[in-house]
């Protein structure tokens, strides 16, 4: 990821729409799967954090923590759930231009088994 020029804060009121968090309930007796985000030298750190906040509904601190893990460790498990759920998340991440893959939660490459992951089910709007 890359860090670019930071700009001054501006905290006026405004509106926010377009949260894409999914609200699906669990489907069937699926094996848990992970959604993995991989580091790349192009995506902005701020943008990756924005995507984690706006799409998964993660709080800023959690989004930043996951973003830093991607940046420093090369990858991070950002959500888990059924195969279907993480695949849907992966398509959404690809839509945002993030490099996302899915893997089985156990025995997957890297072994980074879910310590930092979220529920995989979007929690809706923050705040």
């Amino acid at each position: 990821m890359t860090l670019s020029v930071a700009l001054g804060p501006d905290t006026q009121e405004g509106t926010r729409t377009g949260t894409e968090a999914s609200t699906d309930s669990l489907t069937a007796p699926d094996i848990p799967w992970n959604l993995v985000i991989w580091n790349d030298p192009v995506n902005l750190m701020s943008y990756v954090s924005y995507v984690f906040q706006s799409y998964f509904g993660y709080a800023e601190s959690k989004a930043n923590k996951l973003m830093m893990e991607v940046h420093k460790k090369g990858r991070s498990i950002v959500a888990h759930g059924s195969k279907e759920q993480v695949e849907r998340h992966a398509v959404a991440m690809h839509g945002f231009g993030l490099w996302a893959t899915v893997e089985k939660a156990t025995g997957g490459p890297g072994g980074n088994s879910g310590k930092s992951g979220g529920s995989g089910q979007g929690k809706g709007k923050r705040g």
């Binding site: 905290t11 926010r16 906040q53 800023e60 709007k125």
Partner: peptide, 9 residues
């Protein structure tokens, strides 16, 4: 965009 998220938090 992050500021607009903050203002709703």
């Amino acid at each position: 965009m992050l500021q607009s998220l903050d203002s709703r938090a």
